[in-house]
Simulated assay, not measured.
Amino acid sequence: MKICDILKKDKIIPSMKGRNKYDLINELVDLFKDDERVKDLEGMRQSVHEREKIMSTGVGKGFAIPHSKSNSVNDIVAAFGKLDEPVDFQALDGQPVNLIFLLVGKENLVGPHIKLLSRISRMMNRDEFRESLAKAKTADEIYELFENEEKQYFEIN
Rank of each mutant, 00 (worst) to 15 (best):
T57S: 01
F89G: 00
L24I: 15
V110N: 09
K61V: 12
G43T: 08
H49G: 13
F63G: 01
K106S: 09
Q46G: 10
A91I: 04
S72N: 03
G111F: 15
G105Q: 12
A78Q: 11
P112Y: 09
K53H: 05
R45Q: 07
D93L: 00
T57E: 00
D34V: 12
D75P: 04
S56T: 05
P96G: 01
L41G: 06
K39V: 14
F80L: 07
L116K: 10
L109D: 13
A64S: 10
K53Q: 12
V104I: 10
S70C: 12
V87S: 08
L102W: 12
K69Y: 08
F80M: 04
G62D: 01
V87T: 06
I76K: 02
M44I: 10
E50F: 03
D75I: 03
A91F: 02
H49V: 13
Q95E: 12
N26K: 11
D75T: 03
D75M: 03
P112M: 10
L92H: 09
P96E: 04
G105E: 14
K33L: 15
S72G: 15
V104M: 00
R45L: 08
F89A: 00
P112C: 08
L24R: 02
Q90C: 08
E36C: 14
S70P: 04
E107I: 13
A91N: 03
K115F: 08
K39A: 08
N71W: 13
F89K: 04
E85T: 15
I100G: 11
Q46A: 15
V38D: 06
K61R: 10
D30K: 05
L102G: 13
P112V: 11
D40C: 06
E27W: 04
S47Y: 00
V48S: 06
L103V: 14
